[in-house]
Simulated assay, not measured.
Amino acid sequence: MTKKIKTPNEMSFLDHLEELRWHLIRSTLAIIIIGGLAFLMKGFIFDTVLFGPMMPDFPTYHVFCDFSKLLGFSESFCNTEPQFTLQSRGMSEQFSAHIWTSIWAGFIIGFPYVLYEMWKFIAPGLHDNERQNARGFISIASLLFFTGVLFGYYVVAPLSINFLGGYSISDTVVREIDLLSYISTVKISVISCGIIFELPIIIFFLTKIGLVTPEILRKYRKIALVVVLIISAVITPPDVVSQVIVAIPVLILYQVSIYISKVVIRRDAKKQKKNVKSS
């Protein structure tokens, strides 16, 4: 006998939990497998990727240098020789850094598959028209995430490393940065930007469930501007150029989110009118 496949309406709470468990297991396995491959690519992951932003020939510094000269601001990015050394003081610190960096690499690279598994869990509970409207969700969300990751790696991480690595309260203090502290700075810059760039997707779903409207987003636009500038000031050096570089894309994403919310409201209104006429 073939086992009857239950529809979402026929599934109990425990059935949904079991279904979610398997989606999470498959997502975790994908991250572990990709992370295992990253573990074998130690030289590339660390020497090229992670330690790249602390090198003076990192491409971003050349762009920042030219940009600063063009606007007549400080040319601090034109001299980016490392002003600190990395150190490992724990017996297992390097091995631990290798393991966790590989896992995070597995998550970043495997993000589209994790989204796919989450979508497979959510999609059966949606109506056909809702699934149709959300077509391309995985591709768009993945594109936004990877764009944010690249922005964090090529913009936020170099800004943070250049400023924090060279900051000094006294010549008496020797700049010897712990390996895990350095990796954490790069990781937070990359992951946080990847998540921030998902703002249009988040606004789309919040609008669909009625928690957000274009009017609310416009009303709090000034507050959002202040919040963005504060965040930019926290994660970047205290100069105008760095803060503007970080703030501009986030503000653009906020404006795009307003447009997306407006489109969702307009489509829902048209569907309601169509349903009223048909009834």
Rank of each mutant, 00 (worst) to 15 (best):
Q87M: 10
S160H: 01
F121E: 10
A97S: 15
L14F: 15
F197T: 01
T80L: 11
D66N: 13
S139E: 11
T213V: 07
K120H: 12
M11P: 02
L143A: 15
W119E: 07
A233R: 04
I183Q: 11
V156Q: 01
A105S: 13
V234D: 04
N133W: 02
V264I: 14
E75A: 11
S242H: 05
C78Q: 01
R267T: 09
E130I: 13
I202W: 06
F13K: 10
S192G: 06
S96G: 03
Q94Y: 03
K219W: 05
I223H: 08
P238T: 01
F73K: 02
I138F: 12
E19T: 15
F197R: 00
V227E: 02
T60Y: 07
G136D: 03
S12L: 09
A105Y: 08
E130K: 08
L199R: 02
D178P: 14
K187G: 05
S242K: 06
L29W: 08
S74M: 03
I99K: 09
T80W: 02
F77V: 00
I260V: 15
I223D: 07
S192D: 04
L211K: 12
T80F: 01
R221T: 11
G210S: 09
R267Q: 14
S168G: 09
A105N: 05
G72Y: 08
G194A: 05
W104M: 13
Y182L: 13
K187R: 14
Q243K: 06
T185D: 07
L159A: 04
G52P: 10
T2E: 10
A134T: 14
F151L: 04
F145C: 08
L50Q: 00
M54T: 01
G35W: 09
L150E: 01
G36C: 05
I33M: 10
P82E: 03
F13W: 13
Q132L: 13
A157S: 14
F205E: 12
L24K: 09
K208R: 14
Y116C: 03
N162L: 12
K3A: 12
K42E: 15
